[in-house]
Amino acid sequence: MIHPSRCPLCRSPGARAYAEVRARRYVECVRCRLVSLAPEQRPASTAERQHYATHENHPADTRYRAFLDRLALPLVERVPAGAEGLDYGAGPGPTLSVMLAERGFRTAVYDPFFAPDLGPLRRSYDFITCTEVVEHFHSPADEFDRLNRLLRPGGWLGVMTEMLREGRAFADWHYIRDPTHVCFYRPATMVWIAARFGWTIEFVHRSVVLFRKSLASGFPTV
């Protein structure tokens, strides 16, 4: 069955039905391989904010710091000393920005619900981090376009999200139980994103991807 909506990532028309789990309908794009929740079933912003406010992440939590180090450690090995960054989608308890500042990297924060000041979005950065964020994007095409604009030539984008892999039982996957998770990326989807923007890509962990923007500022299309 073909779903009439466009893919929220590559904007291709039509998508095939992928799964229905607990009355939630998911479709898969045949072009970029993104799996997404049917648009009419995505949560309203008020429900999203209420759910995010239940998160109890904070800089003093050593387990949470270890979790974030999956992205932070490989990132700081690649960015130059004094690099400036942005934690995009920092959530109610910004922690990665604190960890990076402790390592000498000044890091601004932006979150549409908890740090909505648009000032940080009027600058550009040597690196941007998105930890457990991209699965919440209702319009990933627009969000990745914005991230590309915010990133300086030669800059790094670090993305942490659990990826949908072959052989995984989708209906039993804990990641889809979060009502605010609406987009699910395959490794092939990440490769498509890199090609879309002319970025290089490194899979540094099962759930962490590092993209690097070309030193040239061209904007390839796929």
Rank of each mutant, 00 (worst) to 15 (best):
40 E>H: 07
25 R>C: 10
108 A>R: 13
56 E>T: 07
81 A>M: 00
121 L>M: 12
58 H>C: 01
43 P>K: 02
64 Y>G: 03
39 P>C: 07
108 A>K: 04
45 S>L: 15
17 A>F: 15
17 A>G: 12
99 M>A: 14
55 H>M: 01
9 L>A: 05
79 V>W: 09
100 L>S: 10
100 L>W: 11
20 E>L: 12
95 T>V: 05
120 P>R: 01
26 Y>I: 05
37 L>W: 12
80 P>V: 02
41 Q>P: 09
32 C>R: 00
47 A>H: 12
24 R>V: 14
53 A>E: 15
10 C>T: 10
13 P>M: 12
18 Y>G: 06
69 D>V: 00
24 R>F: 13
18 Y>W: 13
86 L>E: 04
28 E>R: 01
33 R>P: 00
65 R>I: 10
74 P>C: 01
24 R>N: 13
100 L>N: 11
9 L>D: 05
55 H>P: 00
29 C>S: 02
41 Q>L: 08
22 R>D: 15
71 L>Q: 10
30 V>S: 12
81 A>C: 00
26 Y>V: 07
72 A>I: 13
103 R>L: 14
44 A>H: 11
121 L>S: 12
74 P>F: 02
29 C>G: 01
16 R>I: 15
41 Q>S: 04
77 E>Y: 02
62 T>C: 04
100 L>H: 10
118 L>C: 07
80 P>H: 05
14 G>H: 10
87 D>W: 06
75 L>P: 07
78 R>C: 08
84 E>R: 13
33 R>S: 12
44 A>M: 10
61 D>I: 03
120 P>T: 01
23 A>C: 06
54 T>H: 13
122 R>N: 10
59 P>V: 09
117 D>W: 02
87 D>Y: 07
86 L>M: 02
102 E>R: 11
119 G>R: 10
73 L>I: 09
86 L>F: 08
121 L>D: 09
113 F>C: 07
36 S>P: 01
16 R>S: 15
113 F>V: 07
51 H>A: 11
88 Y>R: 01
115 A>S: 12
41 Q>N: 05
59 P>T: 12
119 G>C: 02
116 P>Y: 09
103 R>Y: 13
82 G>S: 02
83 A>C: 00
109 V>G: 05
112 P>C: 11
24 R>C: 10
114 F>I: 11
116 P>H: 05
40 E>S: 11
42 R>D: 02
35 V>N: 03
35 V>C: 06
81 A>N: 00
31 R>H: 06
104 G>N: 09
51 H>P: 02
56 E>A: 02
78 R>Y: 11
71 L>F: 07
52 Y>Q: 07
87 D>F: 06
103 R>I: 14
78 R>I: 06
26 Y>D: 06
104 G>C: 12
68 L>Y: 13
118 L>F: 09
51 H>M: 14
15 A>M: 14
108 A>P: 01
81 A>H: 01
51 H>T: 11
17 A>P: 04
71 L>C: 04
54 T>L: 14
91 G>K: 08
82 G>T: 02
28 E>M: 03
104 G>S: 11
101 A>Y: 04
76 V>F: 04
110 Y>T: 00
116 P>C: 07
76 V>K: 05
56 E>P: 00
96 L>S: 08
21 V>I: 14
23 A>T: 01
93 G>A: 06
70 R>G: 10
63 R>F: 14
18 Y>N: 03
72 A>P: 03
41 Q>Y: 09
30 V>Y: 04
39 P>D: 09
73 L>G: 03
23 A>F: 10
119 G>N: 08
15 A>G: 14
114 F>S: 05
